[in-house]
Nucleic acid binder design. Structure first.
Lengths: 247, 247
DNA sequence: GACCTGCATTGATGCAGATCAAACGCGCGA
DNA sequence: TCGCGCGTTTGATCTGCATCAATGCAGGTC
């Protein structure tokens, strides 16, 4: 039944697809050897919940393959996504016993896990890991703050455009740089997008189709998105356009 | 004209009011001596902008006294606060050249500043600082994610109650623990609250007065708030009530 | 005392997005 | 081939908050 086998992932860190972007990015060969001794791979199927909020966390780890989400739910069922987990992202918080959010696989996923205690010990002894984790956490904080602007002040159309523009930017299967068309697959259902954006799924659907009608995006099926003009999309997102020319 | 003098702050770290909560919390005496050599105090008046987004940042530092905000503004003027700076909070990002947000003093403020380069050098040599900064950044990330739920899914009334409940919790001038009444001063104008909550200032005003009419809070003047029953406030905020009983 | 000026309150009206409801389309197993 | 379920689309209506517009009110200045 398992569609994605752990065996597909190279066991050797040097061949790992996220080697230079994950929490281990700065590690030297000898440090990798140490990590290697406490790591193990786990795979999850699309839809599976990896951790429930409030559960004891017995590991931390990196997303190797696939896409997941971090969500918070109120007692009455209102749900807000607070993080999108793409390959190389780190899951879990060293020093904390229990999970604060639900972690859910939205596609089939593979994670590189470390048992929490050994990882924490290693962090105190290996500055390269703590340094990299600090850098990644600061980046996540910036992303969270960017998202606060989206949630608090943008219109539904701008929210959708913002999400598309973020996914497009992080999905590197594209000819960026040049102004050419960008193509990518949306790793989220309409409902998950709604939970990310603080909207209803109906509004998400309407706004996506509006962007399509207006030629900002093209759709093949429901998930395959083509962006003919990225600047146009960024403009719709309300981002300061012209990509930050500094000089 | 300056109402708050830098001279009022003790020069000796050991007597510093934020000694055990700021980025220096874990430092030993010898490490404090090193920090002492690169630190300097600066004071700001209420309303003053400390840093403009996009500016070169020449220092990082800790809030010693007073309250500030981190805000993001879109080209058309829409504004979202993305961080509230209370005493002991850290400002600035090591490793980054330019500021990403506007930093504004909302009350008179005193900061303990470190020139960026020496501080960065020291971070690599003093693990206690980097460790503490990681911990603080992870806390801020949690706070930001909590806020995403507020912005994305809560009603105006719940948003106001959430803000009051957060300020009440961080303002330690109160008899917490017991169920007694809590009193504190709101460090923000109605407009600043609106910017924090993704609302208009009119809605903020109306909802505050609604909470007052319903007996959830009492007001002396426009800023002095009394919360007769904190659990009631938490309930209005839509927080999982019963304060997280673990056992 | 008269007059600012900067918050805050209060009221009337409009609209973006929520809510309620129904139908579509596609993959899948019987 | 049929029906079933899930994600999605589309339509009609409702409503919470934004918007526009005065008015109130305290502190500071002349």
């Amino acid at each position: 039944m398992t569609k994605l086998s752990v065996a597909e992932i190279p066991r050797d860190c040097e061949d790992c697809p996220i080697r230079h972007r994950a929490v281990c990015a700065r590690c030297e060969a000898d440090e990798l050897d140490l990590l290697d001794q406490i790591k193990y791979y786990r795979s999850y199927e699309a839809g599976q919940t990896i951790v429930w909020s409030g559960d004891r966390m017995e590991f931390v780890g990196s997303v190797v393959k696939g896409v997941g989400t971090l969500t918070q739910t109120m007692e009455d069922g209102r749900t807000q996504m607070v993080g999108l987990l793409l390959p190389s992202d780190f899951v879990g918080r060293p020093g904390r016993e229990t999970a604060t959010y639900d972690v859910v696989a939205t596609t089939d996923m593979v994670m590189c896990c470390f048992r929490k205690k050994p990882f924490e010990d290693m962090m105190t002894r290996t500055p390269h890991i703590a340094q990299r984790l600090l850098q990644m956490t600061l980046d996540e904080l910036d992303a969270a703050r960017e998202w606060m602007l989206v949630l608090g002040r943008k219109t539904a159309r701008e929210k959708i455009a913002s999400l598309l523009s973020i996914v497009a930017r992080r999905d590197a299967t594209l000819n960026l740089g040049a102004g050419g068309p960008i193509e990518f697959e949306l790793p989220l259902t309409r409902e998950a997008m709604a939970d990310y954006l603080g909207l209803t799924l109906e509004t998400v659907s309407r706004q996506i189709n509006a962007l399509k009608r207006d030629g900002v995006i093209e759709l093949k099926g429901k998930r395959q998105v083509t962006v003919p003009d990225f600047d146009r999309l960024a403009e719709e997102a309300g981002d300061d356009s012209d990509g930050g020319m500094l000089s």
